[in-house]
Nucleic acid binder design. Sequence first.
RNA 1: GACCCCAUCGUCUAGUGGCCUAGGACUCCGCUCUUUCAAGGCGGCAACACGGGUUCGAACCCCGUUGGGGUCACCA
Length: 473
Amino acid sequence: MSATPPPVVTRFAPSPTGFLHIGGARTALFNWLFARHHGGTFRLRIEDTDRKRSTEEAVAAILEGLTWLGLDWDGEAVHQFARAERHAEMARQLLAEGKAYHCYCTPEELAEMRETARAEGRAMLYDGRWRDRGPAEAPPGVPPVIRLKVPREGETVIEDLVQGPVTVANAQLDDMVLLRADGTPTYMLSVVVDDHDMEISHVIRGDDHLTNAFRQTQLFKALDWTPPAFAHIPLIHGPDGAKLSKRHGALGVEAYREMGYLPEALRNYLLRLGWAHGDEEIIPSERAIAWFGLDAVGKSPARFDVDKLNNLNGHYIREADNARLVGLLTPRMEAALGRAIGEAGRERLRMGCESLKVRAKTLAELAENAAFYLAERPLELTPKAAKLLRPEARQILARLGPALDGLNDWSEPELGEAVRAFAEAEGAKLGQIAQPLRAALTGSHASPGIFEVMAILGRGESLARIRDQAEKI
RNA sequence: GACCCCAUCGUCUAGUGGCCUAGGACUCCGCUCUUUCAAGGCGGCAACACGGGUUCGAACCCCGUUGGGGUCACCA
């Protein structure tokens, strides 16, 4: 009989002090993937114990970001602040058991302590001066904090699933504050109690929490609880190797949404940042779930690279269902147009989408490239398009219009045949006809195949656009 | 400053002692396809930070150096 392993329960625990940024999104993704891979549970906990910095808007932004990314959590989100009383109770219990104590140090005293330590080249730690003093010595009028009495000798080891075994001397860790002077619990206490109460089996979070893991391990032991498994994933850096700044990728996921990235592209990109499965690059979520494991997570930080994100996004746009793309495009284009898009316009987008999408890296670009289908006459010409419409070209258009008007069947193949025949009759190369035609129809020098464009635009609109640019005779 | 962590092409990475004259992807550059622009196909440039060991043999193991990062709150 082998012992059945405890069920996998992971959590994403952001503090609602801002939007869901790209690093947080990756942490959430890894937690989600790990839970889904093991058929476990992925929970969400809002760490809102800092009342001054936490906002409802931030909570909403985080939930929206996760939802957009498709990272669904199990059960209700836990709001940490609501559990403050439970946390405080555990601090008091430790106090009663003699595992914690009151400390009456003033902020000034603590600052002085750090200053001295720094000057002497030691770690800036609390020296434990109230460890063994009784309340009788308490200065009047100073509300105490409760500190945990941690071992001063020996070492604390965590078996990190990503970093491997990491050891730190207990002398490097000081007696952490559990309960503030105002009676509210600190982050360190709240996290430990909540992770225990929520039965979290794996704590997967950013590298910046690695040192917290030591303190939390000590707290778990003081409470006679078994610590969860830890996995500290490397942070994402900016393109310059420095910490991710707002300038680069430290934007909220909603900013990526607005820029026209698809959630599956962002997921794929974030997954490959610090994790690999052989040479695989395109990894849709189903396969990601099947393949994901902490053992394949790299130990070194990765830089954020927009080019690769763009490439992936382009791939997923090409793969995307046209109806879905039109749905995403419509509000975007209506905002740019300042008017609603009618059924005829939607139909043009639906038909044009297929060949338009191979030309775009983002939805923003796709919308821009599709704009000519909805533009009102007379079209505005880009400089390059204007250059194509020299007088000779305009004269050609003047002759081409009537030639096309005679067509019985306004279809892509018929139009192709007709234009080719026209070019031959003119003694011109196809390009000499097609480019001015493109400029007249799209206002640009680059577009999908011109016969397709004419077919989608329809006879009336196409001929009118040609007439707009044709030399008046 | 103290403690901890990291180190393969410009970037993301494969690689766990011989399969590596180091593979893939992005970027960039050619060629091809072509009515334009893309996409696609083909090809190219480009890396084991450095110095010592261990070993018959090191990108892979050990030590050091250098470089980078993280943490040192009554913030999370």
